[in-house]
């Protein structure tokens, strides 16, 4: 598989405040990633980790402060802003179909208008009907003249997927597209996206805070923390044996009643949000149960750990034998088991 989408060392600095007291936040820090043809890459992280900012830069909606994004070797934004033709081949599915759909337009217009804007010649009705069938809204004739208020949340999200699909994208970028939906509907949307990926030879960037959905959807996974990718690799390998303490904390904190109870030490320290994010050195070290003195060193980069493409940003990647460096309360969960 050759790389289709390449993200080279992108950073995003948000500035706020007046000219007397300007504050700068580096929301995304030197992130590089690759999406291969036909692949699903999950980007996983908690709120504020920079994953949505990264998505907007990839789509060309936000010019990166540093670095560049290329699709098939061609840039997505021109110097100084402005989306290029290439960006059309990247389409976004947003989190909240209730917010992003125009409630004054019929389904036909919601899906047909972008076709027109992108230079296709009418009539569009047959193409809209075909798109509706592709996203499972059948019989399509029953849906094409409806207004969004007549659709359920899951149906709205299908309409938004049809709209994105109409433009003929190579890559779909989905930012938590199921988090506003009930779970039994959300899984249908995930299945639909996997089917579309297969049938239309799309690649998919799946952005989520939920490790379970990331595992369900993706071939490879990248874990983000504090604006950086802290670990990446084949999804199954990373979830079976995380090498970064943050990945391990995220995994152990994710509810899964069928899993054996895990040591509390792995996530207790990680929950101390108020410990703050250091600007240099390992950004996770104040919340890391395994932190050592040298974690403040400034050169903590992504290190390749295996030949299967696993990388971890940690000076002391976890092994089976890693013990927490700080004493923690005993695992109370044992009593329950």
């Amino acid at each position: 598989m050759k790389p289709l989408l390449q993200v080279h060392n992108v950073s995003q600095v948000y500035e706020s405040g007046g000219f007397l007291r300007k504050s700068r936040v580096r929301a995304v820090r030197d992130v590089s990633l690759e999406l291969r043809e036909g692949e699903v890459l999950a980007v996983v992280g908690e709120s504020g980790c920079g994953k949505s900012t990264l998505a907007r830069m990839i789509l060309g909606l936000l010019p990166p402060t540093e670095g560049r994004v290329e699709l098939d070797g061609r840039p997505v934004v021109r110097r100084g802003g402005g989306r290029l033709e290439t960006a059309k081949r990247l389409q976004m599915i947003f989190q909240d179909p209730f917010e992003t759909i125009n409630s004054n337009q019929k389904v036909e217009t919601v899906i047909g208008r972008p076709l027109q804007l992108h230079g296709a010649k009418g009539p569009f009705r047959d193409r809209v009907l075909k798109l509706l069938r592709q996203v499972g809204l059948t019989p399509a004739e029953d849906y094409i003249d409806k207004y969004p208020s007549q659709l359920s949340g899951g149906q709205k999200q299908r309409v938004m997927i049809a709209r994105a699909l109409g433009i003929g994208p190579r890559v779909l970028v989905a930012d938590e597209p199921t988090s506003m939906l009930d779970v039994s509907i959300g899984i249908d949307i995930m299945n639909l996206m996997l089917d579309l990926k297969r049938d239309h030879e799309l690649s998919l960037l799946w952005i989520t805070h939920n490790l379970g959905s990331a595992r369900y959807m993706s071939d490879r996974i990248a874990i983000m923390f504090g604006g950086q990718i802290v670990e990446s690799g084949p999804t199954e390998e990373v979830i079976a044996a995380p090498k970064h303490p943050y990945t391990k904390a995220l995994l152990y904190a994710s509810p899964d009643p069928r899993r054996e109870q895990v040591e509390a030490a792995a996530f207790q320290a990680a929950g101390r949000e108020e410990a703050g994010l250091p600007e240099t050195g390992c950004r996770f070290r104040h919340r890391c149960p395994y932190a050592r003195e040298d974690c403040a060193r400034s050169d903590v980069g992504l290190i390749a750990t295996t030949d299967s493409g696993r990388e971890v940003r940690c000076l002391h990647p976890l092994t089976d034998r890693t013990e927490p460096s700080r004493s923690q309360e005993a695992d109370r969960k044992e009593m329950e088991a």
Partner: peptide, 23 residues
């Protein structure tokens, strides 16, 4: 049963989940 089938798990084999059709 349908609800339990709708949550992707972090353990066990990766299988296609079917959710619950309809609304």
């Amino acid at each position: 049963q349908g609800l339990l089938r709708s949550f992707p798990s972090l353990t066990g084999p990766r299988v296609r989940l079917e959710g619950i059709p309809g609304s």
